[in-house]
Amino acid sequence: MLNVALPKGRLGEKVYAMFEKAGFECPAIHEPGRKLIFENEEKQVRYFWVKPSDVAIYVERGAADIGVAGKDILAEYAPDVYELLDLNLGKCRMAVAAKKGFRDNPEKTLRVATKFTNIAKAHYAAQGRDIDIIHLNGSIEIAPILDLSDVIVDIVETGSTLKENNLEVYESFMPISARLIANKPSFKFKNALMQEILGSLSAQVEAEK
C-alpha cells in the first residue's frame, strides 16, 4: 500500500487529478463528506488530506510514502526527504516586500517580519546583512504599516494583497511551486510503484510545459 499525503485545498485537488490520470484513482475521494482518508485496495494506494504545511512532516516520518509540498515549506523546514519532481503547480515566489518607496538603510539593522524565519535568515545571511527577525503567524502585510518591521518576507502570488495594503515587492528571490517528495526508506522499499507514479507525473508535467 502506497500512502500519499495531499495538501488540503485547490492545489491538492489538482495533484489528485494527476495521480488519477496516472492510473491511481480512488473514486471515494469525490464523495461529499468530511472524511480525510481514502483507499483503493485494488490499486494499492491510500490518499489523505493534511494541512499543506504538515505534508513534509508526514513524509519525513514515514506516515506517508510520498506527498506534495510547496518549495517554501521544504526550504523553511529542510525535511530529510527526496524531492523528486517539480509539479509546476501552485507557482508563486518568495519575496521581500515593503512600503512603497522604501529605502533599505544599510546603517541600521533591518527589521524583518515573516512566517518563514529560516528562509529569511538564510537570504540575508548570504548578503551579510544584519537583521532582526520578527516571527509572525499571519497578516504579515500589516507589520510594515504599523512600523513593527521595515520589510516582510512572504509568498507573493499576484501581488494584489500587497497592493491593497500599500506595499510593493522590493526583491523576489525564490521561485516556488509544488514538489513531489518521498520518504527515503519508502523510496527504496516501494521503488517500483514510486517509479511508475514518478514516470507518469513527469510525463504529465512535460506535456503541460
Partner: peptide, 9 residues
Amino acid sequence: GFIKGIPTG
C-alpha cells in the same frame, strides 16, 4: 542502511 518499517536510515 535502511530497514523496512523504520522511517529513517
